[in-house]
Computed example of a mutant assay.
Amino acid sequence: MPADVVMYTTAVCPYCVAAKNFLKQRGVEWREVRVDLDPAEREAMVARAGRTSVPQIFINGHHVGGFDDMVALDRAGGLVPLLEQAP
């Protein structure tokens, strides 16, 4: 079963585009939540992540952080094991 990846984004966020391209290159699917279209979703993201910036990425319920955080996790060898865990 694939990992449950949720990414909170906005339409005009270059880091959101970079994060989606990063995951796409690795064959990872995600569910996108557009916080610029729904203020309630933005509030939920801030409550869940403790951050106001986008993207905010969650894998199997684990808060990874933003694009730079995800790349750092990948370089440290932690992203693939997280993606391979059952949701």
Rank of each mutant, 00 (worst) to 15 (best):
residue 1 M to I: 13
residue 1 M to C: 11
residue 2 P to A: 14
residue 2 P to M: 12
residue 2 P to S: 13
residue 4 D to A: 14
residue 6 V to S: 10
residue 7 M to V: 15
residue 7 M to H: 09
residue 9 T to I: 13
residue 9 T to L: 08
residue 9 T to M: 12
residue 10 T to R: 14
residue 10 T to C: 05
residue 11 A to Q: 15
residue 12 V to P: 06
residue 12 V to A: 15
residue 14 P to T: 11
residue 14 P to S: 12
residue 14 P to G: 11
residue 14 P to Y: 13
residue 15 Y to E: 06
residue 18 A to T: 07
residue 18 A to G: 03
residue 19 A to F: 02
residue 20 K to D: 10
residue 20 K to M: 14
residue 22 F to K: 07
residue 23 L to E: 11
residue 23 L to T: 06
residue 23 L to G: 06
residue 24 K to M: 08
residue 24 K to N: 12
residue 25 Q to C: 07
residue 25 Q to P: 02
residue 27 G to K: 05
residue 27 G to N: 05
residue 27 G to S: 05
residue 28 V to Y: 05
residue 28 V to Q: 04
residue 28 V to F: 03
residue 30 W to F: 13
residue 30 W to A: 03
residue 33 V to Q: 07
residue 34 R to M: 07
residue 35 V to D: 00
residue 35 V to Q: 00
residue 36 D to S: 05
residue 36 D to P: 05
residue 36 D to V: 06
residue 37 L to D: 13
residue 38 D to Q: 07
residue 38 D to H: 07
residue 39 P to L: 04
residue 41 E to G: 00
residue 41 E to C: 05
residue 41 E to L: 09
residue 41 E to N: 06
residue 42 R to K: 14
residue 43 E to S: 11
residue 44 A to V: 08
residue 44 A to T: 08
residue 44 A to K: 11
residue 44 A to P: 00
residue 45 M to Q: 04
residue 45 M to S: 02
residue 46 V to N: 04
residue 46 V to W: 02
residue 47 A to P: 04
residue 47 A to M: 08
residue 47 A to G: 12
residue 48 R to Y: 04
residue 48 R to N: 06
residue 48 R to D: 06
residue 48 R to M: 09
residue 50 G to H: 11
residue 53 S to D: 09
residue 54 V to C: 06
residue 55 P to Y: 07
residue 59 I to F: 06
residue 60 N to R: 09
residue 60 N to T: 11
residue 60 N to F: 10
residue 61 G to M: 11
residue 62 H to Q: 15
residue 62 H to T: 12
residue 63 H to A: 15
residue 63 H to W: 12
residue 63 H to C: 15
residue 63 H to F: 15
residue 65 G to E: 06
residue 65 G to I: 10
residue 67 F to Y: 15
residue 68 D to I: 08
residue 68 D to Q: 14
residue 69 D to T: 03
residue 69 D to F: 00
residue 70 M to G: 05
residue 72 A to T: 13
residue 74 D to F: 01
residue 74 D to Q: 02
residue 75 R to A: 13
residue 76 A to N: 02
residue 77 G to E: 01
residue 78 G to N: 03
residue 78 G to E: 01
residue 79 L to T: 00
residue 79 L to C: 01
residue 80 V to M: 09
residue 80 V to P: 00
residue 81 P to Q: 04
residue 82 L to A: 01
residue 82 L to G: 01
residue 82 L to R: 01
residue 84 E to D: 03
residue 85 Q to C: 01
residue 87 P to Y: 00
residue 87 P to T: 00
